[in-house]
């Protein structure tokens, strides 16, 4: 186990995995925070915009903006899982293989 750990640390692929994955995770986290707090700030300061009807109907801009926020949470998790379960897990598998 200890030797394994040393070999993993020394493996350039490990550095690559950690850097790529954490950059990706933080980017997506920031994207989610920007979308959510953007929505909340619109609620606090942009009531007029959210309450403006789209075209001549009664449906306001608030409805698609709210739905977009919900759907974006799902899509962002999907993007992360797709890359993490594919590319990152493959890289991880190689690292584990090489450390044996």
């Amino acid at each position: 186990m200890k030797e394994n750990a040393q070999r993993i640390l020394a493996n350039p692929k490990f550095q690559e995995l950690v850097q790529k994955r954490s950059a990706f995770a933080w980017t997506l986290s920031i994207a989610m925070l920007v979308i959510y707090f953007g929505f909340i700030l619109l609620v606090a300061f942009g009531k007029g915009f959210l309450g403006t009807p789209i075209g001549s109907g009664v449906t306001t801009w608030g409805i698609p903006v709210g739905l977009f926020t919900i759907i974006s949470a799902f899509i962002l998790t999907g993007i992360y899982v797709h890359r993490a379960n594919g590319e990152f897990d493959e890289l991880n598998r190689q690292i584990m293989e090489e450390s044996k």
Binding site: A25, M32, I63, G66, A73, T77
Partner: peptide, 24 residues
Amino acid sequence: GFDGLIFSVGWLVGWPIILFLVAE
């Protein structure tokens, strides 16, 4: 009406963050 949606959104957005930073 619309205010209910604000709460729903708040309940949901913690999950992506849990996935990105904590889950694995």
